[in-house]
């Protein structure tokens, strides 16, 4: 699903990764670990195809679409959670009807525990709630490959448990997840751990 070969990653003239290789296939849950500044975010941005100037080497993705969750929320503060997610669905080309889409969005917002906040402007929500709106995309995305940068940030403990369950479901139905986290990942599913910082 994802094949990285001979990747050399630099940021601001500093060498972060040297001759890095990674192969992610369907059903794999990959956790990238490392200290602050070890290049986790840069690596994920490179994998998503957002940063192409800092690295040399080859990154090939067989999946045609992916879901990337970065430090920036990707939400419009002036739109409600419902409107933000509707735009996400529209721009990712699910050609279901409008009713189907609205039902999906209701379900996704319920899954992240935001019932009752569907029509509040996002900039009036708390940081944790905004994060949950962002995470609701996981329930709407048909993408086989998920690249998640610190998905647990600002999420409370019960939220984390639900989130881990979602990640495992994604992997079990044939998808793949590459993620970073400073928190321990508590699940029975096998995790591929990759430690950065020895470049």
């Amino acid at each position: 699903m994802l094949c990285v070969e001979a990747l050399v990653l630099e940021r601001g003239g500093r060498l972060l990764l040297n001759d890095f290789s990674l192969r992610v296939s369907a059903g794999q849950l990959v956790l990238i670990e490392g200290d602050n500044g070890s290049g986790k975010t840069s690596l994920l941005r490179a994998l998503a195809g957002l940063a192409r100037y800092d690295h040399t080497g080859s990154i090939r993705r067989s999946a045609e679409s992916l879901l990337y969750l970065g430090h920036k929320s990707g939400l419009k503060g002036l739109l409600t959670p419902r409107e933000n997610l509707a735009w996400y669905c529209q721009s990712h080309s699910q050609s279901h009807g409008r009713d189907q889409r609205n039902a999906d969005i209701e379900a996704a917002l319920a899954a992240v525990d935001l019932v009752g906040f569907e029509d509040v402007l996002c900039h009036n929500l708390s940081a944790g709630q905004q994060r949950r709106v962002n995470l609701a995309r996981l329930y709407l995305s048909p993408a086989p490959l998920w690249l998640l940068d610190e998905p647990f940030a600002a999420i409370d403990r019960t939220g984390v448990v639900g989130l881990v369950r979602t990640l495992v479901q994604q992997v079990e139905r044939g998808g793949a997840v590459v993620m970073t986290s400073h928190q321990a990942l508590q699940t029975d599913h096998p995790i591929t751990r990759i430690r950065l910082g020895q470049a």
Partner: peptide
């Protein structure tokens, strides 16, 4: 650019 909607736009298949 600042709120990240731009990078999400680049990732859409559109």
């Amino acid at each position: 650019f600042e709120d990240g909607t731009l990078e999400q736009l680049l990732l859409t298949p559109q």
